[in-house]
Design a protein around this nucleic acid. Structure first.
Length: 469
DNA sequence: TGAAATGTTGGGGCG
DNA sequence: ACGCCCCAACATTTC
């Protein structure tokens, strides 16, 4: 009899799971365990919605395991202690887990590996970061050459399927999956591998899949033009390899005209995800400071009241407020909206990107250290391959371009439902005669802009320029 | 995956 | 018919 532990962290799936597959091959009996590490679940970076999504995902995984003759073991504590104890109890010979990229996870895993026979497998990204280097042996720091190498990389391998039956060692005592916090009804995501794969299939399957409109729709905040898969990729309910294969299959299905482009562009977005995981693994310092050392001296204003207005969605710029309220209510924000609010915080308000990074982590269900950090540093202009600092989003123009009818705004900012299209992106310009009809007094019911964008842009350019060295 | 400022061009109105 | 001006549309440069 041999026993192996499958240590689940952010790979809540049975299909295409290389850690599970390795454990399955290595032993007759498997113990699937999720460890509730107080350091993680009580971290200031973890919000209730993401935690609730995780717990809900654990329940789904337990159900899927039970359908295959096993169940999910839950224990509280320091992973090193918990795993040591479990090995002592069961005589398990090996522990298998999917390798992570965050500094927290890497430090933890190195520590655990000193006292526990831990084997880490690929899976969080399609390719292990260490396997993609420039010809001189150094890591890439620019996306385009990285993506070219990534695309030409061999051996993606085929996604594997879940073992039909998983033999679990009997008699091991665990705890209940916490039932608090629970996902509020305002959250439009159902946790679990089944739902993740269903969404992947709806987005990419068949000949009229939404992915074929991705090129034209992905930036439209008023449409559902994106995959909505980020929470599932975050917790490994869908594997990157499955997503990549689906993108390539979709591209191959319509090779001729323009609509095949959508799948190609979606694949590029997936590669951005790979890129930022790669950057975090190979440049862990980006977690605490700007990647570009020349931009570490910016004189951030860090005004607490303005930050609070940004956070609660009362800046007076409808597209910014709609986006922040969408995240506060649903735990998700459209990617175009993320860029707009990040630009507004770092450029218009001159608040340190780390403040925004932390707030996003506290509120996003898909909050992922690597992608979130990469996105914030990109917008702030401080990151790898970042937008140049003088690239400042105009919240009015962005709204006009990507929410032309103001549908996204009215959905999330109910005060503005009666504002006519002509003024929906700049309601402060409404003449008195229209103000009366809309029952929306600017400065009372809906705030006046907390900052003048034209002035703020000039100010940001000046401060970034003088902070550059 | 920006936007503003500045430059260029060409068609049409007009004396 | 001609030259001049205006300005929209587009292109390029700049931050």
């Amino acid at each position: 009899m041999s026993v192996a532990i499958w240590w689940i962290r952010r790979d809540l799936r049975l299909n295409d799971n290389q850690a599970l597959d390795a454990a399955f091959k290595a032993a007759n009996f498997i113990i699937p365990i999720f460890i509730l590490d107080p350091k993680l679940i009580k971290s200031a970076w973890v919000g209730e919605k993401r935690l609730a999504f995780l717990y809900s995902g654990l329940r789904a995984l337990d159900k899927d395991l039970r359908a295959r003759g096993a169940s999910l073991l839950i224990r509280h504590g320091d992973p090193e202690v918990v795993l040591g104890q479990l090995i002592h109890e069961t005589g398990a010979e090996k522990v298998f887990a999917e390798a992570d990229v965050s500094p927290f996870a890497n430090t933890r895993d190195q520590r655990v590996a000193q006292s526990v026979p831990l084997t880490l497998t690929p899976g969080l990204t399609a390719y292990l970061p260490e396997s993609l280097l420039k010809s001189d042996g150094n890591p890439y720091t620019i996306f385009t050459p990285f993506s070219k190498n990534w695309l030409s990389h061999p051996d993606l391998g085929n996604p594997t399927t879940a073992p039909e039956h998983i033999s679990m060692l009997a008699g091991v005592q665990g705890e209940d999956i916490p039932d608090q916090p629970r996902l509020p009804d305002s959250v439009p995501f159902v946790a679990g591998e089944r739902e993740g794969l269903r969404r992947l299939d709806i987005f990419t399957g068949g000949l009229i899949a939404p992915v074929y409109h991705y090129a034209s729709n992905r930036d439209r905040m008023d449409l559902e033009g994106t995959s909505g898969l980020s929470p599932y990729l975050r917790f490994g309910m869908v594997s990157m390899r499955q997503a990549i294969m689906a993108a390539r299959d979709a591209e191959a299905r319509l090779p001729i005209n323009g609509s095949g482009r959508g799948a190609e562009i979606w694949l590029i977005e997936l590669i951005w995800r790979e890129f930022y995981a790669y950057i975090l693994k190979l440049f862990p310092s980006v977690r605490s400071q700007s990647f570009r050392s020349a931009l570490r001296q910016i004189a951030w204003r860090n005004d607490r009241e303005e930050f609070a207005a940004w956070a609660e969605g009362s800046t007076g710029y409808p597209i910014v407020d709609a986006a922040m309220r969408q995240m506060n209510q649903t735990g998700w924000m459209h990617n175009r909206a993320r860029m707009i609010v990040a630009s507004f915080l770092t450029k218009d308000l001159l608040v340190d990107w780390r403040w925004g990074e932390r707030y996003f982590m506290q509120h996003l269900i898909d909050g992922d250290v690597a992608s979130n950090n990469g996105g914030w540093q990109w917008t702030a202009g401080t990151g790898t391959d970042a937008a140049p600092y003088f690239r400042v989003f105009n919240p009015v123009l962005q709204g006009m371009k990507f929410d032309p009818m103001g549908i996204y705004i009215r959905r999330n900012v109910p005060e503005l439902v009666d504002v006519p299209n002509e003024f929906i992106h700049e309601p402060w310009k409404m003449p008195d005669s229209i103000l009366k009809q809309t029952a929306c007094l600017i400065g009372k019911k809906y705030p006046a802009p907390i900052v003048d964008h034209r002035m703020a842009r000039e100010r940001a350019l000046h401060i970034y320029k003088s902070g550059e060295r």
